[in-house]
């Protein structure tokens, strides 16, 4: 039992160390100039110090291997450092009618929202964008065999900040962007951006 206890304490220490390294290393994503604008002085200090927690590649790989298997790899800085004032949602249209995604349960809708967030943050990555949209469209074409073309709109909502809402009221700026079209043979074309207010 004594040996087992020592092994377990060692394992506990390693687990906690891994979590600390993952936690601080996740802040290094804020180091870019673009992200630094959104940080306060303390945030800039932490983001710039995060590199102290960088480990040699084999160690990083080992930590992430372990973290993936324990479901702890994504870090825990939820809704931080700031919350985006923009909400983007995808809308699928065919022949002027909206094709609703087939999800029925609120949890599935939340899961799709998570995928949507990923899509939004990689919207300028052409390869990434195409493969995701092709996959969604292919599934929708299967469910709607009568449809030949699907237009994918992005509905953008920009909310006033709390400070501006006090001065101007809680305004929401809405933009509808016809972003992409896809045909049954899975050809995807990015449309000339049309913006309607």
């Amino acid at each position: 039992m004594k040996v087992l206890k020592n092994i377990l304490i060692g394992y506990l220490v390693i687990h906690l160390l891994c979590m600390i390294i993952i936690g601080f290393a996740s802040f290094s994503t804020f180091q870019s100039e673009e992200n630094q604008e959104n940080l306060n002085p303390f945030g800039k200090f932490v983001a710039n110090s995060a590199s102290y927690f960088e480990t040699p590649k084999p160690v990083t790989d080992a930590i992430f291997f372990y973290a993936k298997y324990t479901g702890t790899n994504r870090g825990y800085s939820f809704f931080s450092p700031n919350i985006s004032p923009v909400k983007v949602s995808m809308r699928f249209m065919a022949d002027g009618k909206q094709i609703k995604l087939p999800f029925k349960s609120p949890e599935s809708k939340l899961k799709f929202r998570s995928a949507n967030l990923h899509f939004n943050s990689n919207i300028f990555d052409i390869e990434e964008r195409e493969i995701i949209l092709k996959s969604i469209s292919s599934s929708l074409f299967n469910n709607h065999p009568e449809v030949d073309q699907i237009d994918i709109y992005l509905d953008l909502f920009r909310f006033n900040t709390l400070e501006n809402a006090q001065k101007e009221g809680a305004k929401v700026m809405y933009k509808e962007i016809l972003g992409f079209s896809t045909t049954k043979n899975k050809e995807l074309a990015m449309q000339a951006t049309t913006i309607q207010n």
């Binding site: 940080l39 306060n40 303390f42 825990y76 800085s77 939820f78 450092p81 700031n82």
Partner: peptide, 16 residues
Amino acid sequence: FAGIGKLLGTDWLDGN
């Protein structure tokens, strides 16, 4: 880490 992440920006400090 959830707490410290929120301390890095401005939104959680001004209520936004």
